[in-house]
Amino acid sequence: MNRRIAIASGKGGTGKTTIAANLAYLLARLGRQVLYVDCDVEAPNGHIFLHPQIRERRAATTSVPFIDDEHCNHCGQCASFCQYHALLCLPKQVISFPELCHACGGCSHICPQQAISEVPREIGTIELGSAGGIDFASGLLNIGEAMSPPLIRALKNSLAPVETIIVDAPPGTSCPVIESIRDCDYIVLVTEPTPFGLNDLKLAVEMVRALGRPFGIVINRAGFDDRPLFDYCQKEQLSILAQLPDDRRVAEAYSRGELACAVLADFKQRFSALLATMETTLKHPSAAALAGRST
């Protein structure tokens, strides 16, 4: 059965990549078919821990308007239609700002002169490869690009249909995150017991509830001032999948580009337990729905 599991968080730096890469590593060690995809295309870092061999690099493009000046009569309908101000109608010409275009195609559709066509524009690179027994995919947004969702969409469209896809999402709760997790079967929200971690977890919980996806919580660097976080999870009846203790050895492994699972036996056990909990939840969709239910 194909399934997609997203690792997301409100706050950045809570440990999304650590969790995602370790889960992919464990699944591969269990002989399972797994693909890790780094959707944090503005700052991908999964490759640092998985050390993939890249076998293919391809350009990712998005569609942007091209205006045929001979047929354009500067009526301005395209510019007033575009909600993102990617087109500006001046008395003698229409100019476009391709970096603001969301590629909806509306301008070319409504142009009464049929003076607008859609042309491809490169926005980043997609890399495909493998790391040990793990299939690997990653995207990198070109410097200066304002929007990553079209690249994330192209990246996800280039994935092979393997048994388990682990989606390493960007941080936050905005469009790039939604694009990364919207079609996933299960979402793991990683948080940490700090005021910022809790504040941003609340936003992330609202986001996944709005998407109607089943989800669970992983508390990373647990063990210090956890009370407010537990109180919140209890009040909202959230399922805590795992608590990973704050441990200097994990940070040291991280700083060497090593996976905790690969070098620390006790953490391999903790991640195995997390994987088992997720497997149970995924096998019982009703339980998963319950875990993510709204109060």
Partner: peptide
């Protein structure tokens, strides 16, 4: 506006 504030203001000036 998240993006394009300057463009829409330029449209008004024009």
């Amino acid at each position: 506006a998240a993006h394009g504030a300057g463009i829409q203001a330029a449209q008004k000036v024009a």
